[in-house]
């Protein structure tokens, strides 16, 4: 057991939690505005793919990150167009994003690179060491393993919390999610607010995908997100649509992932196929033992049209 619980486990848990944490924030913003976004998985895949694509052709992973964010704007706008503007069914429309995201990215790999399933490796986003923090005893190793992107992601958690729960804009977003009619009566532009919230969720999803493809790894692989977009939704529900509990749930999933990886090396007699399922089982247990009925914002799933 002492071999299992080490500081490097914490590090790998943190790195595995971030690609769940980012789409969780995206799902949270979207649902708080009243749009259920189960398309995060597809948005992550498109983001991860765009990051590698742009990095491959420009050689600059930072531009790759920008490309991923742009793809998030695109996939978010597509979903917003279908659900907010055209008032299509939110679950069905976002399922379409998932199918298109998985199919399109897998179909484009052979077209662009002439190989199946796996792109060649590209430049990764470098880890920039923060000197003061990295020199701290014991916890210094955690800080030295974190890069700019990690800090930015953690800052985004604070930012989302602050915007959603401490600003006017956040109050407007949440009003649209609770009761679009009341929000409209109060003069809030419901359609525009929801549209922007869904676009934001696309950007967060894409960021989570890019984290996997050019921060953790250095390539794109078909269906590489492995359900993290859905784990993010489970974390959001478990956190009762709040930022900090949801973030904790993501970190718990990160630990489950990290423990599964570590246990594979430590105890070879546990079949690793079953260990891989650990985060998903944990998510199911979390949803099952959940205290109280899961209830999101009251307006989720209801399209809004001005009467």
């Amino acid at each position: 057991m002492s071999n299992l619980l080490t500081i490097s486990l914490v590090i790998s848990a943190l790195h595995l939690a971030l690609p769940i944490l980012m789409p969780m924030l995206g799902g949270l913003i979207s649902e708080r505005s009243g749009v259920m976004n189960i398309g995060l998985e597809g948005m992550m895949l498109i983001g991860a793919f765009s990051a590698v694509l742009v990095t491959y052709f420009t050689g600059n992973p930072w531009l790759g990150l920008v490309g991923a964010l742009a793809s998030g704007v695109l996939s978010g706008s597509t979903l917003a167009l279908m659900t907010v503007t055209l008032r299509g069914d939110q679950v069905v429309a976002s399922a379409a994003i998932n199918l298109i995201g998985a199919g399109l990215t897998a179909a484009l790999i052979p077209v662009i690179w002439d190989v199946d399933g796996l792109t060649p490796s590209v430049e990764k986003i470098p880890t920039i060491r923060v000197p003061m923090l990295a020199d701290l005893p014991y916890v210094g190793r955690i800080f030295s393993s974190l890069g700019m992107v990690d800090y930015a992601c953690l800052a985004l958690v604070v930012l989302v919390w602050w915007v959603l729960f401490r600003t006017d804009a956040g109050l407007r977003i949440r009003a649209c999610g609770e009761s679009a009619e009341s929000a409209d009566a109060a003069g809030i532009p419901v359609v525009r607010t929801r549209f922007l919230a869904v676009v934001a969720s696309g950007v967060f999803g894409a960021l989570g995908g890019a984290y996997l493809s050019i921060v953790t790894l250095d390539m794109f692989q078909a269906s590489m997100t492995q359900g993290r977009g859905f784990l993010a939704l489970a974390a959001m529900v478990f956190g009762k649509w709040r930022v900090w509990p949801g973030a904790l749930a993501c970190i718990a999933f990160g630990f489950a992932d990290a423990i599964a990886l570590r246990a594979q090396i430590l105890w070879r007699d546990i079949p690793h196929e079953l260990l891989i399922a650990l985060p998903y089982v944990l998510a199911l247990v979390a949803l099952a033992t959940f205290v109280g009925h899961a209830s999101g914002p009251a307006g989720v799933g209801k399209p809004f049209a001005r009467a």
């Binding site: 597809g42 069905v92 994003i97 199918l99 199919g103 399109l104 179909a107 199946d116």
Partner: peptide, 14 residues
């Protein structure tokens, strides 16, 4: 690519 089938199903759903 055969994955095109997945894209078409996604578009149908959309």
């Amino acid at each position: 690519s055969r994955e095109m089938v997945g894209v078409v199903s996604g578009l149908v759903v959309a």
